[in-house]
Amino acid sequence: MKNLLETIDLRKTYKIGKIEVEALQGVNLRIREGELVAVMGPSGCGKSTLMHLLGAMARPTAGKVLIDGDDIAGMNDGQLTEVRRNKIGFVFQKFNLLPTLTAGDNIAVARHIHGRGGPAHDQHLEEILQMLMIQDKMGRRPSELSGGEQQRVAIARSVANRPAILLADEPTGSLDTKNSEIVLNMFRELNRRFRQTIILVTHNPELVIYTDRLIEMRDGVIVSDNDPFPEDTESELAQPARSV
């Protein structure tokens, strides 16, 4: 399977006043195409920081983040933006829909930024909307939708451009049990039906049953990873880093 994401001795340090906080202290992982992975750990363990780095939202302090083979460490803002635009889809805990636009327009904005359009993509989008059961909600504003519906619109927006990787940060954090279940099943369905690579970042252990692989973090390092192909990962990680 093709490697989509790879981190090599990834480190991220934040400066808060005069204090330096090491959010990530040497993270090595590899995520392959079509995987549905959960990154779990308590608050402050560095999982959100890891998500921001995997999503090209921030640059590492040290180490490498290879997204589809390209190291983002040396990229400028424009290049990072391009990576996000073309390869990444985000789903957030607070949905993050644009409040002034309808659900349909929220999805259209992502497609507009991406520069996508045309009937082929419309068909793909139709399938997604149908699967997420929100095709009749497109004319509504976020304030007119339930939390579960908003999150499904956010999911539709995140995958409307067929990103290589879908990153979801606590996607059920603002939902009740029933809606959480629906949303998690949607992620699973997206993964199964479209071979969508998905990384779910969560502190909720119940979510793990929906994923194929669990990476546990604590204090900025990975403490366990039930990688189905661990030898492959280790042997490859032992090789010199791929140049970009």
Partner: peptide
């Protein structure tokens, strides 16, 4: 600010 963050996360450039 948050909306701008959303647009940036969607791949909206500075120029955009």
């Amino acid at each position: 600010t948050r909306e701008i963050g959303i647009l940036r996360s969607l791949g909206g450039s500075k120029r955009f």
